[in-house]
Amino acid sequence: MKKSKYISLVLITAALASCDKKEKEWNEDEPKVYMRSDSTANYSRSHHGAGIGTALLWYYAFRPYGRYNNGVYNRAGYYSGGISERSNIGSNTGKYGIIRGGFGKGATVSS
């Protein structure tokens, strides 16, 4: 019950609030979007409405992929859980040692 004298937030900003766009904004007349995360891979169609509902989440869903080697970061490509495996990996063998998608089948945990 101690009253807070001062509260500051360094990370959470209105950017999070701006993410609360209704899903229909993405779904209505959804254009056909074909994506690949690796230039050696084939394109496949992506469905935004399949779960990624906000700009911020979409940003985080499609992230650079790379590896640190002797302290130097080498970007190998991009990886996204939102597109098919064949469009992520292609013939880029740098990704073969890592498996992804083994967690996260559940929905929100709100309790």
Partner: peptide
């Protein structure tokens, strides 16, 4: 931040990694 479904498993080194393989 790493989303739970983006967590990777490094088969050779047997530990979990993020999207940058860290």
């Amino acid at each position: 931040l790493v989303f739970i479904d983006d967590i990777g498993w490094d088969n050779a080194r047997e530990f979990f990694v993020d999207l940058e393989d860290e």
